[in-house]
Design a protein around this nucleic acid. Sequence first.
DNA 1: TTCTGTGCAAATGATTTGCAGCCAG
DNA 2: CTGGCTGCAAATCATTTGCACAGAA
Lengths: 143, 143
Amino acid sequence: MKEPQAVFSDYLAKSNLKMTPQRRLILDVFLRDDGHLASEDLYNMVKREDKSIGQATVYRTLKLLSESGLAKEVHFGDGVTRYERKYGSKHHDHIICEQCGKTLEVMDEEIEHLQEKLAESHGFVLTGHKMYLYGLCADCRKA
Amino acid sequence: MKEPQAVFSDYLAKSNLKMTPQRRLILDVFLRDDGHLASEDLYNMVKREDKSIGQATVYRTLKLLSESGLAKEVHFGDGVTRYERKYGSKHHDHIICEQCGKTLEVMDEEIEHLQEKLAESHGFVLTGHKMYLYGLCADCRKA
DNA sequence: TTCTGTGCAAATGATTTGCAGCCAG
DNA sequence: CTGGCTGCAAATCATTTGCACAGAA
């Protein structure tokens, strides 16, 4: 798999943006951590290695990391946006039309994340899951 | 099932809080709506029937409705907290320990809600679902 | 050189809180 | 009566934005 740094560089180039020491540092520090970091957490960590960095830069860079696919926004319920590392996953679940049997592959990062939290709250460490959604597709509802 | 108004009264009494015309009105207007209301939305709706109501009161009352079990907080990704009606549902899913086979019944309102959103985003109307979480329970991880 | 990036501080937007008077129990 | 409410405005908190200068490409 391509290096995260390369992914980021590519994304920046593709978007006519520039690689800077600040962005490089923020990415490195971000990658070092597992779990979910609030922008401010990351800001504090980064500041240890570069006193001059600005809080706004961390906010701006996290948004870029999200867009580049390297980070994923996570929203708990406090007003704080957190970010976690995102890997090139190909996992998906299914939604099935009860009428015509049509099946779609679907995937929702937030559900995945909440499943983990749910398991956690019951003392489990989640290793996998199956989820099937049943419903009526647009076509069958028209008919 | 007990009337929502009664549920709220009971909750207030139990918590040494008082029923007031404002709270009654906010609850009534809230119950009238399906979907997810931001505090400000509800504030605007309520204000039509009581010009003198304060925004803070709506915030405070929505929190109480949440605590009383009548409303459920919903967090999308914009910085706004929304609320939806909550019903006494008995539906649940399962989490299974891959090691010892122990099974727990679990339930997460937010997952349920997101499943609906996910189905919706694919043009489906959700009629049901099955979800199985697999993991390791606390005991088996210790062993 | 030419934009884009950065730090800073001010601005925003949602939600909370302090306060003085009001009112349900 | 009395302690919980209410509306209002000021205060918070996370995040965004304007700006002048700095530095990648």
